[in-house]
């Protein structure tokens, strides 16, 4: 597990960090009100008290009240989705597991929609993420309980459970939309398409606790996730308290999914595609895969959001629609490949 394949893992880390360093100033500059990258850097320098100059009032406001919160949200959501995907695949021992495909995202969405539709506000700004977390957690536990048999999760069972859970959660979302008033319906519809366009600093603060907790906890379990690839019993024989590990990781997945979903609705396939590509390039060791997927997810989502708001400018493509357009064919290819390797579903 150590030292092996350090090459690709290091190269990828460096590549992803470089991509992030290029994308962030680009995303901050590009838009309906263009700001040259040099000005962006200069304004950041000024805020950090390292020289630089303040921009004019409009540019400064666009940069710090519109663009940066949106960038930070994209990074948080992307990192959460990528990391949740990698974790979930490890926990289920199944490369097709992802919060979106198995219904956890939509489960969390039920919580969020309920909060909007019923006008709940018991935790202030944190109500939406908290409701998404609770609903997401219930859904993961349900999927987990329903799709495991004899200590294993078969692909077919998992995907079919996902279909059932997605159908049920979709119905619940529909029910809450039916119950909601017009203003809430608009809010829900907009949110459901998976957009980051209404990013504000309070929104960043609302999801930060969930996302940060999940992202910090996840890497602690990477070595044990490697052992879990051997199966439950062999992992226990190597000293892993398997049941406890699963419960903790399911909690972490629910935290990350809730963070992502409560901001921007269901953004599918990032958690599926990113860990998968990284695994193909650098091997399945979770010590790289988990932080790598968080980093990769952040890069992909920031890039996707940049594309979503520039490709059809001045209109804005819904982010969730864009990732699904690219991600679904990939999922299909993955399905075919897994099927071929297993010689059919039997």
């Amino acid at each position: 597990m150590r030292r092996i394949r350090r090459g690709p893992a290091w190269l990828l880390t460096i590549g992803l960090v470089a991509a992030l360093l290029v994308l962030v100033p680009l995303a901050a500059g590009i838009g309906a009100y263009p700001i040259p990258v040099g000005d962006v850097l200069s304004s950041v320098q000024h805020k950090a008290g390292l020289g630089g100059t303040e921009l004019d009032r409009v540019a400064e406001s666009v940069l710090w009240n519109v663009r940066f919160p949106r960038i930070v949200l994209a990074l948080l959501v992307g990192a959460s989705l990528g990391c949740a995907g990698a974790l979930m695949q490890g926990v289920f021992g199944n490369p097709l597991a992802e919060p979106g495909t198995i219904g956890v995202s939509l489960g969390a969405a039920v919580g969020a929609v309920a909060a909007i539709a019923l006008g709940l506000n018991f935790l202030g700004n944190w109500t939406l993420p908290a409701m998404a977390f609770v609903a997401g957690l219930c859904t993961v536990l349900l999927v987990y309980a329903m799709s495991r048999a004899g200590g294993r999760t078969e692909v077919v069972t998992l995907i079919l459970t996902g279909i059932a859970v997605n159908a049920f959660c979709g119905a619940l979302v529909g029910l809450f939309i039916f119950l909601a008033d017009t203003a809430a319906v608009n809010q829900i519809t907009f949110w459901q398409l998976g957009s980051l366009s209404q990013a504000t600093w309070p929104k960043v603060l609302a999801v930060l606790p969930c996302a940060a907790a999940g992202l910090l906890l996840a890497p602690l379990y990477s070595r044990r996730l490697d052992l879990l690839a051997l199966g439950d019993r062999p992992a226990r024989h190597l000293g892993v308290d398997v049941e406890r590990l699963r419960i903790v990781l399911i909690l972490v997945v629910a935290l990350l999914t809730a963070a992502a979903v409560s901001v921007s609705g269901v953004i599918g396939f990032v958690g599926l595609v990113v860990p998968h590509l990284l695994r193909m390039a650098a091997g399945p060791g979770h010590r790289f895969l988990i932080p790598g997927s968080a980093l990769g997810g952040a890069v992909v989502l920031l890039g996707a959001d940049l594309a979503a708001r520039t490709l059809a400018a001045p209109a804005e493509l819904p982010l969730g629609v864009l990732t699904a357009l690219v991600g679904s064919p990939f999922f299909f290819w993955l399905l075919r490949r897994t099927r071929r390797k297993q010689g059919g579903w039997a």
Partner: peptide
């Protein structure tokens, strides 16, 4: 885990770890 090691009847692996990585798991 420090006192007994177990070889199961059939060996499965959910992700494509290399042979050396698998053997190294025994040191966990």
């Amino acid at each position: 885990a420090l006192r007994r090691a177990v070889l199961p009847q059939s060996a499965a692996l959910s992700f494509p770890f290399t042979v050396e990585e698998v053997v190294r798991m025994g040191r966990a």
